[in-house]
């Protein structure tokens, strides 16, 4: 690990003033330190924001809920309000990684973490996503990679809370010296393109992610998130689904289905969700939605199995959200 300046800030303004040049913002440190130890990044300065009190806390507001960027995954997973009304988020945060990591990892950090492609995460590979000219996954080991939007960099969206927040249509609050702006999570992430393969989000270098705002769910809203890994403990998703259903009696009025480990950014399965609207949630409708979500999939050489796996993750999570199935023992965490 390289030598660096550690700039410990206790206010947002102080942090913003430190975010110059090659500075990297550090919250829980889980992702940043991992990349530093692996030699993937060598920042000249770390701006520590963990001691900024205003970035903490889960606050219920008139329009929904406001989550400070420093709320930990453990706090999200354990919070009664989130568990009952924003279940998809509590599920996603509460089943991420390990208890130790959930105690340290923050919501902001989880949303801002970089992809976990093993070529990207190793200093041995000068890959496209790190600003070089080649993707090693295409002709290499791509069993954990994307099955949609695979044309530039087929790494998958790593953040399970992003999947949940996308399903809830939440927004992130970005703060800079110039002021604040709100960006919907659904527009926060950028699909890698040839011109800017290293850009992952719309955040500007002088902006700090300070909060997440989730709108109050309509009456009858039920939601769930499940991820599937190769292991039950501490594993990245090979398939996952975040599902939000707005129910009127037995009938689904509105639905959002979001996939994480399917593409480089959280993928809103619009056609799949549309299949549920106006119908009762049954195993049949849920399975149909799961299959519909795979239309247009372009799996790579080693990950065709994901096209089989995602429809299962989706149908079971729809049924879980609708209260028609228990949490799946095959799901991780």
């Amino acid at each position: 690990m390289n030598k660096f300046i550690f700039s410990d800030c206790t206010s947002v303004d102080a942090a913003l003033s430190q975010m110059t040049g090659e500075a990297v913002v550090k919250a829980g440190g889980v992702d940043v330190l991992d990349r530093m130890k692996n030699g993937v990044i060598e920042p000249a300065k770390l701006v520590n924001i963990t001691n900024i009190p205003s970035l903490r806390g889960i606050h219920e507001t008139e329009t929904g809920v406001r989550l400070g960027a420093l709320v930990t995954l453990a706090e999200l997973g354990d919070h009664p309000l989130l568990q009952s009304q924003y279940t998809v988020l509590a599920d996603a945060a509460g089943h991420a990684a390990t208890p130790q990591i959930r105690n340290a990892a923050t919501l902001g950090g989880n949303l801002m973490q970089k992809v976990h492609c093993w070529y990207y995460r190793s200093a041995d590979f000068a890959c496209l996503r790190k600003g070089h000219d080649m993707c090693f996954a295409y002709d290499g080991l791509n069993q954990y990679h994307a099955i949609f939007d695979t044309n530039v960099c087929p790494s998958v969206a790593p953040s399970s809370t992003a999947v949940a927040l996308s399903a809830l249509n939440a927004s992130v609050e970005l703060t800079s010296a110039k002021g604040k702006r709100l960006v919907p999570v659904r527009e926060f992430y950028i699909k890698p393109d040839d011109k800017h393969p290293t850009m992952e989000t719309v955040i500007a270098p002088d902006e700090l992610l300070t909060a997440v705002l989730i709108p109050k769910p309509a009456a009858g809203t039920r939601s769930a998130y499940q991820k599937y890994g190769e292991k039950s403990s501490y594993d990245w998703a090979i398939a996952d689904a975040g599902v939000v259903l707005e129910m009127q009696g037995d009938v689904c009025r509105k639905a959002a289905i979001v996939l994480g480990a399917a593409s480089p950014t959280p993928r809103l399965a619009v056609d799949a969700a549309a299949l549920l609207v106006g119908k009762p949630i049954t195993e049949e409708t849920a399975r149909a939605a799961g299959l519909a979500a795979m239309q247009g999939a372009t799996p790579l050489s080693m990950n065709g199995y994901k096209v089989q796996l995602f429809p299962v993750a989706i149908y079971r999570t729809i049924l879980l959200a609708a209260g028609k199935m228990d949490r799946d023992p095959s799901a991780a965490g």
């Binding site: 093993w118 070529y119 190793s122 041995d124 590979f125 090693f136 002709d139 290499g140 080991l141």
Partner: peptide, 10 residues
């Protein structure tokens, strides 16, 4: 897992 194209462990 050894990468077949570079021989490096991923």
């Amino acid at each position: 897992h050894l990468d077949p194209n570079t021989g490096l462990m991923v």
